[in-house]
Design a binder for these strands. Sequence first.
DNA 1: CGCCACAGTGGAACGCCGTTCCAGTCAAGC
DNA 2: GCTTGACTGGAACGGCGTTCCACTGTGGCG
Lengths: 227, 227
Amino acid sequence: MPDRPNPRAERRQEALSRDRIVATAVELLDADGEQGLTFRALATRLSTGAGAIYWHVANKDELLTAATDAMFVPILDVRRINASPPAKIRTIGLSVFDAMDAHPWIGPQLSRTSWQTSMLELIGQQLQLAGVPAPAQFTAASTLVSFILGASSQNAVNASVRAASGTRSRSDSLGAVADRWARLDPDEYPFVHQIAGAIGEHDDREQFLAGVDLLLTGIGLLGQPTP
Amino acid sequence: MPDRPNPRAERRQEALSRDRIVATAVELLDADGEQGLTFRALATRLSTGAGAIYWHVANKDELLTAATDAMFVPILDVRRINASPPAKIRTIGLSVFDAMDAHPWIGPQLSRTSWQTSMLELIGQQLQLAGVPAPAQFTAASTLVSFILGASSQNAVNASVRAASGTRSRSDSLGAVADRWARLDPDEYPFVHQIAGAIGEHDDREQFLAGVDLLLTGIGLLGQPTP
DNA sequence: CGCCACAGTGGAACGCCGTTCCAGTCAAGC
DNA sequence: GCTTGACTGGAACGGCGTTCCACTGTGGCG
């Protein structure tokens, strides 16, 4: 390793490893989405050939799973924080929401059953602690999981669209959507068109939390929302 | 067209048309999912070449959008039926749920903003009719949309997994999941493991409707659920 | 100390994909 | 009957995931 006998491609400084591959894959995914992750692009960025990557990773699917894992596992550490069950559920939800906003490519991956199960477990535990009656626990937990994953995915899609067009700042996020809505035909879209003017002050993170609260209210863990 | 001068590839009986292309695309998608839709497979099934398809359809993306359209537009006809707003919302939700169960490839497509807007409009109108106070309408409508799309997508993923393994019947659906859950480590997954035994009689369609009702309760359109 | 075995590498090659290109075909209009 | 132009279908292109394999460098063994 000290001196290179042949002057061909510069030899990598650090050895190839599964961790380095996954980390680089995340960089590519964050930069250009799922289509940005290519074994050739990965190999170029790691100064190696595509074949070498296959020594550490079985295929692209495993690579995507590992990358999602790296983003998602920290979320499970919500267990550490100390708060009431409803507050913990909100925190779990927000963590997923923020992770998917920052890494929109996670969306399709997180729907995989294994992660669904992890979230169901995490939220179900909180519902038990909160004293939700046993027969209602499963419905409540799986509804929360579905909403959290659904709302986060859809926000991520919108975030990608936002990034593709010019709009930048977080505060403009719903504003841009509102603009599009305001231009819709009022006869065909009376509700959306009317509401477009009223959501200027909204933030989609708050919007998401309001949805969680709506569910917690229905479950009986909260009083009536904003009466 | 009456007689074929050359005996090469059998000439198509019906002329190529955008509708025929889209209909065949749906067949392929239903049979093998998104990866089953290929311009080559499509051309073979239509007894033509790949190039001819591009005369009627700009690219694969437009084809997928058109196919989704064909599946989704009938859902919007819920406007016709006559029922109370909560019942109509349940019907809309179930239509989406069933459509995605039958055609799991729709999932990623339905998250596109245009479909989100259509559903928001449909459900927002019902909330207005039901007398939900104006400031709460947007949150309520978008939460319902997120849940309906999220829960339907996740069910579709599970349905695909189910189809990939051996399990067939609808009634076995949650049963198979319960089996997998029952085998999980009770120390790591206390909630999921415990609940696995209790959901034998559940049906995921009913489960979905229970989630909708939970939300309607939180919105204030329903009494307390099963007190 | 020399050799060997083998984990690890990287580039060439394969078969598929979406898409483009273009030489043909054929019915309708002059 | 000729011309035109909408329409066809097969060849070809670049890029993808994946496989294959000749090669390298190093640690352990004789």
